[in-house]
Each structure stands twice: as C-alpha cells, then as structure tokens.
C-alpha cells in the first residue's frame, strides 16, 4: 500500500497565515492527516498549541469541521460525537488531535476509557514532548534528562511509552509515526480509517522553541530521531506488530547514527554528558528490545 507523493491531494486543508510558530511540526502533521483523509473528517482538539494555531474567529486555518474542547475531555467528547454521527448514518472518520499533556497526563483517564470502550475513533497523539503551549513545562512524555521550565536541570523521570500503554488496551490498531516520514504516517492514517474501533497513532513532532533548535530543523530533528533509534516507527494492526519500513534498518544497532547527532542540535539536552549519553543509548536498546520481542509475539 505504498503511496506516492504525487498522488496526494493538493487541496488547501490548512489556510496559510496561522498563529503557529515558524517551523511548527503540528501543522506539518495535521496537514498530513488531512491529506490522508482528503479532508473528509472531523477534528476534536483539546487545549494545547493546536487550539491557538488556527488563529482568530471568524476565521480559522483548519479546513475541516472542528470542535475545540477542554484539556482533559477530547476522547470523551469524540466518543459522544462519533456516536451521534454514526447514529445519523455518517461513517466518516472522527479524529482526535491531541498533545502529549492532554494524552499522557490530564486526559489520560478519558483516553483510556475511550480506548477500553473501543470507540470508533482515530486518536493522534501529536507529541512535542512538553507543554509547549504554556511555555515548555515537562509532561508525561518529556524524555529523561530533557530540560523544560519545570525540569530546569533535566527531567529525572522516564517518558511514558504511550503507544505501548495503548497496545495493552487491546484496541485494533496502534502505531507510532513521525512528521519526517509523511508517506509512512499517511499510510497509517489511511489504514486506521479503514478499521472500526479505536485507533491510536503516536506521532513524533519536535518543536523548535520547546526543544530549542533552529526553526528550519523540524524535519531534520524528527528524521534524526528515527535514524538514531530513539524514535522507533512500528505498527500493530489487529494482532500483528511490525517495524515500519523507515525504522526497519535500525533493528541493527550498528546502522543507527550516534545519539549525539540528535541531541547536540537541541538545547534541551545541553546538559547530557558522555556518561549520560551511554546510559541513554542503553535505554534505547532496551526499548528496541521490547519492540522486537513484541513483534515476535504478535506475528
């Protein structure tokens, strides 16, 4: 089911002139979702950068039916919304587009509840790895050692592995994705839209001001995350877990780029020294090991 870039719709799903920071990964990701579904969807968006990005009423930069809702509520609102539209004979995808705070922290119960009920939703966790909208505070997915305004000396705890947590909800579809690999992500969104039930996609979306890197490096950082193996693209589809093509070669540890190439471009990891870097690489190995074992388990 490979997709060619020239087959993607070229409609304007995002109206230019948004309130996003230059180089914002969320708009890159959201555009890709809209391309994947050809704009035939509705969006439920909790508090976060994506509630500010569309700009000011009476205009919005989002070209699809959208409802903005309180921080913790989006999976629940979407559950009701999808129930209503299905009842009215509309089978189009209802997409929750939520950040890491909304998903891994404040809205975690609602996310877990909606997944446990296997609501017919596509839930996309657009993860910029901190509360960027309120000024870069640490969230449940902020990685270990990362600077934020509430972890000024680096976060002392591990990030929550949201995709693995969601996998254990026994939902039909769980995947990770990255804004740097649009064709992989778009294929996953399209696949998800063909499956009934709760679909969860964890999208890596690095934020220039929040992670402290140059505006032009958004895609580069996201790509390096995959190339260094710190972000693994995988897909669980109704019983089968596979490593996605862009990550496949990095099963072999020797093919991975040194983690420092990813970290040195980000101000948030400025305090990660050589020893910590070694520990970090060990953690990455452990994560890979888990995923590879799961891929054997879910064959």
């Amino acid at each position: 089911m490979s997709i060619r870039i020239d087959q993607l719709p070229r409609d304007k799903f995002i109206m230019p002139g948004t309130a996003a920071c230059p180089g914002c990964p969320l708009l890159i990701g959201l555009r890709q979702v809209m391309m994947a579904l050809n704009g035939k969807m509705s969006l439920v968006i909790p508090a976060g950068c994506s509630s500010v990005i569309p700009g000011m009423s009476p205009a919005t930069s989002y070209g699809v039916p959208t409802i903005h809702v309180p921080f913790a509520s989006s999976p629940a609102v979407a559950s009701g919304l999808v129930s209503a539209v299905r009842m009215r004979g509309n089978n189009g995808p209802v997409v929750v587009w939520a950040g890491d705070g909304a998903s891994s922290d404040i809205g975690f119960a609602a996310l877990s509840g909606a997944a446990a009920r296997n609501e017919d939703l596509i839930y996309i966790l657009a993860d910029n790895e901190a509360y960027m909208n309120t000024g870069i505070q640490a969230s449940g997915t902020t990685p270990w050692m990362a600077w934020t305004t509430t972890s000024p000396n680096g976060k002392t705890e591990e990030r929550k592995e949201m995709a693995l947590i969601m996998l254990m909800h026994k939902i039909p579809y769980v995947a990770t994705a990255s804004i740097a690999y649009p064709l992989d992500f778009i294929a996953k969104v399209r696949k998800a839209s063909q499956i009934r039930g709760f679909k969860f996609i964890h999208l890596y979306a690095p934020c220039p001001p929040g992670l402290k890197f140059d505006d032009s490096y958004t895609v580069k950082i996201a790509q390096l995350a995959v190339e260094t193996g710190i972000w693994v693209l995988w897909e669980y589809n109704q019983g089968k877990l596979t490593i996605s093509p862009p990550s496949a070669m990095y099963k072999d540890k020797s093919k991975r780029k040194p983690l420092s190439e990813y970290m040195k471009l980000q101000g948030r990891f400025a305090k990660v020294g050589e020893d910590a870097m070694k520990l970090y690489e060990a953690k990455i190995d452990a994560y890979w090991n888990t995923i590879l074992k799961l891929s054997e388990l879910y064959k």
Binding site: M15, G17, G55, S57, P58, A59, T60, S61
Partner: peptide, 15 residues
C-alpha cells in the same frame, strides 16, 4: 456568527 469560524487565510494576520 461569533462562536463559529470558517476557513480563511490570514486567521493570525499577514504572517
């Protein structure tokens, strides 16, 4: 008219 918005360029001005 005030609660709902519709897609239009420049929702955050001439960026």
């Amino acid at each position: 008219k005030y609660l709902l918005s519709r897609p239009a360029p420049g929702s955050a001005g001439a960026t």
